[in-house]
Amino acid sequence: MTRPPSRFRPLWVALGFVLCAFGVLGLILPGFPGTVWFILAAAAFSRGDPRWEAWLLSRPVVGTLVADYRAGRGMPLRAKWIACVCIVLAVGLSLGRIPVLAGQVAWVLVGLAGVLFITLRVPTRRDTP
Results as ranks from 00 to 15, higher is better:
Leu93Thr: 14
Leu19Glu: 00
Arg126Tyr: 11
Gly16Leu: 05
Trp52Cys: 04
Ala14His: 08
Ser94Pro: 02
Leu120Lys: 14
Ser46Trp: 12
Pro99Glu: 06
Thr128His: 09
Leu95Phe: 12
Asp127Gln: 09
Val110Ala: 14
Phe117Ser: 04
Gly114Trp: 05
Val61Lys: 12
Arg3Val: 12
Gly26Trp: 03
Gly16Ala: 07
Val61Asn: 05
Gln104Val: 08
Pro60Met: 11
Val122Met: 11
Cys86Gln: 13
Ile98Asn: 01
Phe17Met: 03
Gly111Cys: 02
Ala54Tyr: 10
Leu101Glu: 05
Leu15His: 07
Leu15Thr: 15
Val91Gly: 00
Val108Tyr: 02
Gly23Cys: 06
Val36Ile: 15
Arg9Glu: 03
Gly114His: 06
Val108Glu: 00
Asp68Arg: 15
Trp52Phe: 15
Pro4Lys: 08
Phe117Ile: 06
Ala54Thr: 14
Ala44Leu: 09
Val105Ala: 07
Gly96His: 14
Ala71Ser: 14
Cys86Ile: 04
Ala83Trp: 03
Ala79Phe: 06
Pro123Glu: 08
Gly96Pro: 02
Gly16Asp: 00
Lys80Glu: 03
Leu65Asp: 01
Gly63Phe: 10
Val115Pro: 00
Ala106Lys: 13
Val110Asn: 03
Pro33Arg: 13
Ala79Tyr: 04
Arg59Asn: 03
Ile118Glu: 02
Glu53Ile: 06
Val61Glu: 01
Pro99Thr: 11
Ala71Arg: 15
Arg78Thr: 13
Pro99Met: 09
Gly48Ala: 06
Val88Pro: 00
Pro99Ile: 11
Ala67Gln: 14
Glu53Phe: 04
Asp127Arg: 13
Gly96Tyr: 11
Arg121Phe: 12
Ala79Ser: 13
Met1Gln: 09
Ala14Cys: 12
Pro4Thr: 09
Pro50His: 11
Ile39Cys: 03
Leu27His: 03
Phe45Ile: 10
Arg7Ile: 14
Arg9Thr: 08
Gly31Met: 09
Leu120Arg: 15
Ile82Asp: 01
Val85Gln: 04
Pro10Cys: 07
Gly16Ser: 07
Thr128Asn: 05
Gly111Thr: 00
Pro60Gln: 12
Pro10Ile: 10
Leu15Lys: 09
Ala21His: 09
Gly103His: 12
Val62Glu: 00
Arg97Met: 11
Pro10Gln: 08
Phe45Gly: 00
Cys20Asn: 01
Trp52His: 14
Gly96Asp: 03
Ala44His: 05
Met75Tyr: 11
Leu19Asn: 02
Val122Gly: 02
Thr64Asp: 05
Leu40Val: 11
Arg47Phe: 13
Thr2Ile: 13
Arg78Tyr: 10
Ala42Ser: 15
Trp37Gln: 02
Leu101Gln: 09
Tyr69Cys: 04
Ser46Gly: 08
Phe17Ile: 05
Phe38Lys: 07
Asp68Pro: 01
Ala90Glu: 02
Ser46Val: 11
Ile87Tyr: 00
Gly31Cys: 05
Cys86Glu: 08
Thr64Gly: 05
Ala42Thr: 08
Phe117Val: 07
Pro5Phe: 10
Leu56Arg: 10
Arg125Ala: 10
Arg78Ile: 14
Val100Met: 07
Ile39Trp: 04
Gly26Thr: 06
Ala41Lys: 07
Ala43Asp: 03
Arg3Lys: 14
Met75Pro: 00
Ala102Arg: 14
Phe17Cys: 02
Tyr69Gln: 08
Trp107Asn: 01
Ala79Glu: 02
Leu15Ser: 13
Val110Gly: 01
Gly96Leu: 11
Leu120Pro: 00
